[in-house]
């Protein structure tokens, strides 16, 4: 599993491997070697890549990396695979609105086939004497409403399922 960086709207996958002198940078099918970086003052250093020696200014803020190289500024974001992959699939799981706690349905606000946008009210439910609103985790077409008014449900039950049709 390679490392991934976002630069502008593109994602770039790369891998660094140790070499005999410095590292090797693997980009797609290309290999650049040796590559090395020597730190000088705070926020500046020298990059060596193949036979080029390039002064670099940099600043790091969390996963964000700001680079000033050859008169241009680049803003990159390190895409932590654990987080990226978990989030990717969060989106997939968002096709279902689930119950955050056990409760009873008081009212349904949508019908099958309705096109709703993210955040739209789907249901009013009651739990522990409190009323709360179940909202659409993202936009879509309502495919199925799993419970009717008065029905009780368990925690994590699917309340409303969406399809992506028409989006």
């Amino acid at each position: 599993m390679k490392h991934s960086f976002a630069l502008d709207v593109e994602n770039y996958e790369l891998w660094l491997s140790p070499g005999q002198h410095g590292y090797r940078l693997h980009l797609d099918d290309e290999v650049f070697a040796p590559v090395s970086f020597s730190h000088e003052l705070d926020g500046s250093g020298t990059l060596v890549i193949a036979s080029d020696t390039i002064p670099v200014k940099f600043a790091i803020d969390g996963d964000r990396l700001y680079l000033h190289i050859r008169g241009r500024t680049y803003i990159l974001r390190y895409r932590d695979q654990l987080r990226t992959l978990a989030c990717l699939d969060d989106q997939a799981s968002h096709l279902v609105a689930r119950a955050p706690m056990p409760g009873v349905v008081i009212a349904t606000k949508v019908s099958r086939g309705d096109v709703v946008s993210g955040g739209a009210t789907l249901m009013l439910v009651e739990s522990m004497k409190l009323e709360f609103v179940v909202r659409a985790p993202r936009g879509g077409v309502v495919e199925r409403i799993h419970f009717g008014v008065g029905d009780s449900f368990e925690r994590d039950s699917a309340l409303v399922t969406f399809s992506e049709e028409g989006r």
Binding site: Y12, L14, Y23, L25, V35, L47, Y74
Partner: peptide
């Protein structure tokens, strides 16, 4: 980015998990 390999090389070398 005209210097894409250099930019990504610097990014890689400056990112702890990559190193």
């Amino acid at each position: 980015a005209s210097d894409l390999p250099a930019v990504l090389a610097a990014a890689a070398l400056l990112t702890r998990p990559v190193r």
